[in-house]
Design a protein around this nucleic acid. Structure first.
Lengths: 191, 191
DNA sequence: AATGCTATGTTAGAGGCGTTCACATTGGAG
DNA sequence: CTCCAATGTGAACGCCTCTAACATAGCATT
């Protein structure tokens, strides 16, 4: 990316894009602010005009990641009337997202020094599905929807994290993400 | 740790201990091989006589972490005859471990470049509890014990990971680890 | 006991990264 | 048109990982 003008014009977004690109290439290890700057065709000091440092850039990347995840979940649950089907699709979409964007996923959910984005709107999507599932008696109505949704979220998240590990570290999680999610929810609720 | 002899004597373990110490102090961010060497009172090149690099040291730390986790789980389930109680204690111990040793926990379960230790023996402990729980009809006998145990492990792991995040990132997971585990398993199986 | 091999430690340095600071350029508001 | 604030550069600091050449000492064999 060689530039003719002194000013880049849209450096901030270019940096975020470059960062996502590196993560998408699986280069979580070799990720560096210098590398991001290089890809944007800019000096290593330039990013500091837009971000206070590496962490703030990664936070911005994570934020866009949350938006992407939310969109995936919405898409998965949008045109599915059947409650059971919708819950399973939602679950599959979550694990699928982690599987398709492993380094982005790790970046989103790593522990941050300061504040960091959340997945509130994504949680809402799951929560609504749980409310409906409880109304249909597909799953127990006993614990509150919030608690139930939280439990399911935890399950899906654990599933995603564990299935991302190296082959011999997996606990036999070699199936495609959707099957993994389905069989797990089935195990817990007998769906 | 100032030394009088030229040779350290037990540097390998001292490095692992130092690394665990730093992680225990919550210094996941400021963790460095140089810092570990410094604490052992040794030059920054010395660790390379015992480990091929930073990752191999962390792998060794992770390995000991798995042993510690396994011990915790054994202790939690050993003297508990009641099946339900045992399962809940086991679950609580898992989330408790993550809560008590957050950086060690993250180190254990981060994705590694090469091979890395697993938690097979820990899984066996959970598996046995699940077998017993299914035999008592405490939980459904439907999916195989392996699949059931895997699902529960995922749930606990997700719970652990998510509850470790910053306060406002938690999904209302402010209860002590044991309560978190208990209420979640209750939600799923109506225990 | 003396010798020498090898494990273990040291010093020096290359190359990379995150970050800061003084300085350069330029788009746009007045 | 002028000048300011925003945006980018170059150079430098300190820290990091890792390597290479060299120093010391534990130990096995004689």
């Amino acid at each position: 990316m060689t530039r003719t003008t002194y000013h880049h014009g849209a450096l901030r977004q270019a940096l975020i894009d470059g960062a996502r690109e590196i993560l998408a290439e699986g280069g979580h290890e070799q990720f560096s602010l210098n590398e991001v700057a290089r890809r944007a065709g800019v000096s290593t000091a330039a990013p500091y005009r837009h971000f206070s440092g590496k962490d703030e850039l990664l936070a911005a990347v994570a934020e866009q990641g949350y938006a992407t995840l939310h969109a995936s979940l919405e898409r998965a649950s949008a045109d599915t009337a059947d409650v059971r089907e919708r819950l399973l699709r939602l679950a599959g979409a979550y694990v699928r997202f982690a599987h398709d964007h492993p380094d982005l996923f790790v970046t989103m959910f790593r522990s941050w020094p300061g504040a960091a984005p959340v997945g509130h709107d994504s949680f809402e999507v799951l929560l609504q599905a749980v409310v409906d599932a409880q109304a249909t008696a597909l799953i127990p109505a006993k614990p509150s929807p919030e608690l139930m949704a939280r439990s399911i979220w935890a399950t899906l998240h654990g599933l995603a994290v564990l299935s991302l590990r190296q082959p011999h570290q997996r606990f036999g999680m070699d199936e495609p993400p959707e099957d993994l999610a389905t069989s797990t929810l089935s195990a817990m609720f007998g769906l």
